Computed example of a mutant assay.
Amino acid sequence: MNSQPLARLVQAFLVMLAMTVIVFIGIHLIGNPVDILISPEADQMERDRMMSTFGMDKPLWTQYGIFLMNALQGDLGTSFVYNLPAIDVVLSRLPATLELALVALLLAVVIGIPLGLYCGLRPDSPVSRFIMAFSILGFSLPGFWMGLILIMVFAVELGWLPSTGRGDTVEFLGVQWSFLTWNGLSHMLLPAINLAMFKLSMVLRLTRAGVTETLSTDYIKFARARGLSPQRIVGVHVLKNIMIPLVTIIGMEFGSTVAFAIVTETVFAWPGIGKLIIDSINVLDRPVIVAYLMIVVSLFVLLNFLVDLTYYALDPRARRGGRA
Rank of each mutant, 00 (worst) to 15 (best):
R320M: 01
V301N: 10
W145H: 05
V127A: 10
M56T: 13
T78G: 06
A133M: 14
V34H: 00
E265M: 03
D48N: 15
Y311M: 13
R93A: 14
F130T: 15
M243I: 13
L173S: 07
L150Q: 12
I149T: 14
L60F: 09
L100P: 11
I250N: 06
A71N: 04
I27Y: 01
G116C: 07
K58Y: 04
V283A: 09
P59Y: 02
M146R: 03
F130K: 09
D48A: 14
K275C: 00
P316M: 01
F67C: 10
G138A: 08
Y118F: 11
M146K: 04
K275I: 05
T264W: 01
V297W: 00
G255K: 07
I249C: 05
V203W: 01
L9M: 12
M152L: 13
L314F: 08
Y311N: 15
T310A: 15
G210I: 10
M188S: 05
T214K: 00
L190H: 07
P287I: 05
N241M: 02
I131W: 01
W270P: 15
N282A: 14
D75Y: 07
L68R: 04
A42K: 07
I87Q: 11
H237F: 13
W61D: 03
P114W: 03
V203N: 09
G165V: 06
I151N: 12
T248F: 05
M243R: 12
P40V: 02
D35T: 13
I151E: 07
L190V: 11
K275V: 05
W61C: 03
T207N: 11
G184L: 12
V110K: 04
T20L: 12
V153I: 15
R232C: 06
T212L: 15
D315F: 11
